[in-house]
Design a protein around this nucleic acid. Structure first.
Lengths: 132, 132
DNA sequence: ATAGATATGTTATAACATAACAATAAACGT
DNA sequence: ACGTTTATTGTTATGTTATAACATATCTAT
């Protein structure tokens, strides 16, 4: 927990940008937002993202090549989350409950697998967009 | 089913290459394998992949930016699969049973979501590699 | 045969990500 | 405080993945 609080300057800048945005952002979108703060190269963003992901403060959406701030304080303890991504409004909902962790644990057990990283993503249309 | 059988020339070539390989392949690996058959540009591969994925004959591994032939006759009816990807031996196991579809259906219901595409991927170490 | 649809070819470029190396700053024991 | 180690940052170049736009060819039904 104390580890999580120690953010480097670049890490804090990247996390702030992601925190202000409601939706997912690509690394290059983040870079553009941070040019005013002195960012010049993609690596500055990718390096910060890597650390933040390791801390559970940011998640990577594999199907989007994009990143989003964790909607909880941090997912580190839980370690697993599912993302429900609306393709109309771009809204992303993070689901992080027992059903997710139980499913993943069951799958790992069934396949005799030690998972170090997991990704669950649903793409489609959310309720609000469906009704609209 | 009859639709699935009608593969264009390029689609058949791409599926053949994927079928011969045990593991996942990137689009550019496929391209290189098919240069001898006249392929020259990435689009030839990507277009074929898009169709094959639509038919359920090929799956895209989002966390790898790679593609793999469906290990069943076709996943079209089922529509959902989970992939267990060993980072040591590159082996990919496709899991496609009720637990997967039930989990996804439950998640969609809980979030009032109409999913059109799903992705479940576990990265880690398989049993064989763990023991080795 | 021919019109409409589908598939293919080609060039260029966009979008995403990392390697390699140099420089700087922060942390720490003595 | 001092130098040493460690982590962070900066920079250039390049590698990898994916698509836009447009031209051409092939297939299919009438």
């Amino acid at each position: 927990m104390s580890e999580n609080c120690k953010l480097s300057n670049n890490e804090r800048l990247v996390l702030d940008v992601l925190g202000r945005e409601t939706g997912p952002m690509s690394a290059y979108m983040i870079l553009d937002k941070l040019r005013g703060s002195g960012f010049r190269a993609p690596l500055q963003v990718y390096r910060a993202l890597e650390k933040l992901i390791g801390m559970g403060r940011v998640h990577r959406l594999e199907s989007l090549n994009a990143f989003i701030a964790c909607s909880h304080m941090s997912c580190e303890k839980i370690g697993v989350a599912a993302f429900v991504i609306c393709e109309r409004c771009e809204h992303v909902q993070e689901v992080c409950d027992d059903s997710v962790s139980l499913f993943l644990a069951g799958l790992a057990e069934k396949t005799n697998f030690k998972a170090s990283k997991t990704s669950i993503e649903l793409r489609g249309v959310c309720d609000a967009c469906e009704k609209a």
